[in-house]
Simulated assay, not measured.
Amino acid sequence: MSPAASPQSFRLAGVIGWPVAQSRSPVLHGHWLSQYGIRGAYLPLPVQPDRLPDAIRGLPALGFSGCNVTIPHKPGVLKLVDRVDPVAARIGAVNTVVVQDDGTLSGFNTDAYGFLASLRDARPDFRAGTGPIVILGAGGAARAVAVALLDDGATDIRLTNRTQDRAQELARIDPSRIHVIDWARRHDALDGAALVVNSTSQGMVGYPPLDLSLDALPATAMVSDIVYNPLETELLAAARRRGNAAVDGLGMLLHQAVPAFEAFYGVRPNVSKALRQAVAATL
Rank of each mutant, 00 (worst) to 15 (best):
D156S: 11
H255L: 05
N109E: 12
V87N: 12
R143C: 08
F264A: 03
S25Y: 01
A13Q: 06
A239Y: 13
G66H: 06
T160S: 14
P72H: 03
G251Q: 14
H187K: 02
P72Y: 01
A280E: 13
P75N: 01
V99E: 02
W32Q: 11
V84K: 00
N95Y: 11
V84S: 06
R51Q: 12
W32I: 10
R240A: 14
S106F: 03
A171N: 10
H31C: 02
N161W: 09
G192Y: 05
R127H: 14
D101L: 14
D54K: 00
V147A: 04
E234W: 00
S201C: 07
R172F: 00
A263W: 05
T160P: 00
T70D: 03
I178A: 09
A219K: 11
V267Q: 08
T282E: 15
P124K: 02
F64A: 13
L80F: 09
E234H: 11
L235A: 12
A274K: 10
L236H: 13
M252Q: 12
L195V: 04
H73T: 06
L59N: 05
Q202A: 14
R185E: 15
A122W: 11
A5Y: 05
A138V: 02
P44S: 03
L116E: 11
A246P: 10
A21T: 08
K79E: 14
F108Q: 10
I56L: 11
R83M: 04
H187I: 01
G129H: 06
P7A: 12
N198C: 12
L80E: 04
R143K: 15
P49V: 01
A239Q: 09
P124Q: 07
D174I: 02
N244I: 07
W18L: 06
G107N: 13
R11E: 02
D85T: 10
Q48L: 03
V20F: 06
A21R: 14
Y36W: 13
W183A: 09
L28E: 05
M222V: 06
T163M: 02
L217F: 11
N229G: 08
S65E: 14
A167G: 15
H73K: 07
N161H: 12
G139N: 09
A184Y: 00
V69N: 04
V271L: 04
N109Q: 09
K74L: 08
V247I: 15
R51E: 08
A138T: 03
R123C: 11
R166A: 05
P53M: 08
A221K: 10
D50T: 00
T104I: 02
D125I: 00
D111K: 09
L12K: 13
H187F: 10
A61F: 06
I133N: 07
Q168P: 00
F261G: 10
A219P: 00
Q277K: 14
Q202I: 01
D151I: 00
A122D: 05
E234N: 14
R276K: 13
D152R: 03
I178S: 08
D211L: 07
N229H: 13
I226K: 04
R186M: 08
S224V: 01
L62P: 09
R123M: 09
H31G: 02
D125N: 09
V77P: 06
G266R: 09
D102M: 12
G243E: 12
V47E: 01
D85N: 14
